[in-house]
Design a protein around this nucleic acid. Sequence first.
DNA 1: TTGTATGCGTTATCAT
DNA 2: ATGATAACGCATACAA
Lengths: 326, 326
Amino acid sequence: MITMTEIAKLTGVSQPTVSRVLNGNQAVNPEVRERVTACAKAHGYQPNVMAQSLAGSRTHLIGVILTDISNAFFADLVKYIEQEAGKSGYSLILFNSNYDLEHEQNCLEVVQRYRVDGLIVVPVQEESVHWKEGIHRLKIPVVVITRQVKELDSVYVDHHRAGYQVGRHLCQEGYENYIFFGQTADRKYQGFAEALQEWNPVYKQRMIEIASKDPAEIEGRLKEHFKKYPGRTGIFAYNDRRALQMLGILQKMGIDVPGRAGVVGFDNTYMCEYLHPALTSVSQPNEAMAVTAVELLLHRLEHPEDSRIQDCPMQAQLISRESSVL
Amino acid sequence: MITMTEIAKLTGVSQPTVSRVLNGNQAVNPEVRERVTACAKAHGYQPNVMAQSLAGSRTHLIGVILTDISNAFFADLVKYIEQEAGKSGYSLILFNSNYDLEHEQNCLEVVQRYRVDGLIVVPVQEESVHWKEGIHRLKIPVVVITRQVKELDSVYVDHHRAGYQVGRHLCQEGYENYIFFGQTADRKYQGFAEALQEWNPVYKQRMIEIASKDPAEIEGRLKEHFKKYPGRTGIFAYNDRRALQMLGILQKMGIDVPGRAGVVGFDNTYMCEYLHPALTSVSQPNEAMAVTAVELLLHRLEHPEDSRIQDCPMQAQLISRESSVL
DNA sequence: TTGTATGCGTTATCAT
DNA sequence: ATGATAACGCATACAA
């Protein structure tokens, strides 16, 4: 790999002159410019970012720390982040915290060693003080994606509102009983419950929550539920994967969908439209989130003085399909 | 971010001494060692990889260039690559070529600018001479994953053999007619055809290939096929996504699966087991491939003198489920 | 317009 | 055991 100094020798000029030419900055003699440019091209010169960073101070590196790259949703996010960052000449150094707080700390250290210009993160536990301290120590711009952290720029979907939309949808579609398939700590649940409260105030007696992932246990709970309530039941699964599992169990139990039970998933995975019945799901604005996150980060890099925290809740969209509509 | 020089000043020793302590290399006075270590810890010292790379020569960076990060299969691969590389202190700088040859060249340039120690790549077109030149120019170890390139270390599943397994499976399960849902250029197709030839030599008259992705067109072809051949038809889709689409169309057409038609997918996505009927699919050894790729790369980094090319075909495994078994 | 000198944070090679 | 000193590849301030 040829260096500026070598090009300088070959073309009979000084290294700084080569630097000027290659960076197109200052004024240089046209002849010299051409000679140097030609030489650089001929030898396939590529600047050494490590050296540039040392001398300058920007690495043009964005650290990306996710909880699970193999999750299709995050993978999609990464794709758009990479794309958007690339447009501005930034590259991604990627880490997977694997939902492990300790490993996450380790990622923060490594990212620091590479002197990344900024960070885009999905925290394992956004409330963790240890994590907040770790982030604060970095003293570089950080954008949280997918979650909301009050002290930091955050880009996320409003899960509360998304849950509300699902609740309203099920009420409007005539479901009288409800099941939330997930954890009640989920903000989706809060919004869901709020909608039910608003549109069908007596919902509390007609709603259960299933957190288990065990098929047998789930089936048991469902059996009990359907025996107790003869009307139509609207089921909200916290993601498409679970929704698919639910559809399978319902089918096995001989429950008609959407006749007797309606199902709504979350993430609007590609499979939704291929399923039978096609799965109603909530679509998150992945690309918009990624683009926004990168924009926020780059803005901070350009304007370090701007200390206002950017809070960017984004709206999810309910895509209604056969699984919840008669 | 504190530097060695600063620690040196604070502890009253020279910078090289700090270096020795922090790297645990040479012999240093225990008292000094403790003093320096304490100071470094107190100030949260993190080495500057950029400077280390400049001085030393290793960046501990592995470039990863994929055709599509958002593809669940590749995302899974990345997860394991990150994990395995991390164990040896390497980090990933990630690029998405987006199946674009031109953009892929750009990725190669950027990767070069960061002076990555090695590369793990999924080529857009492994036969492209332009690409091969680009790779060769880098003069760093490269491991191709998911594809086979004769001149380079390659880790991939033997698609020919995988296709063969599917063909054999369908023959053994009593299917008399066959459909390959994908491109015939696919090596899976070759192996598939070979198996049919071997187990059911008259297959040629009883087999069609559907390359279209248009539902209406697919349905037309199927209708024609089922009218012509009354026996059971085994369908091999080139990936689970297509298999799911196929299942949907068959269901819509009222074709019994696996009675009248059997379906086999590829990739063994999580959804396979949740579908009804559960989808028979071919499982690729993702983790093993990723681990092997990283191992090969690290081996080359440790042993630059070893010029033998490593060819690592790996075996896929057919996971048979309800969609193809009566 | 161009060259000289210096520094970025390390590692490594010398002496001492 | 430790301290000078040079070197890595580049940017930048300064001098000419």
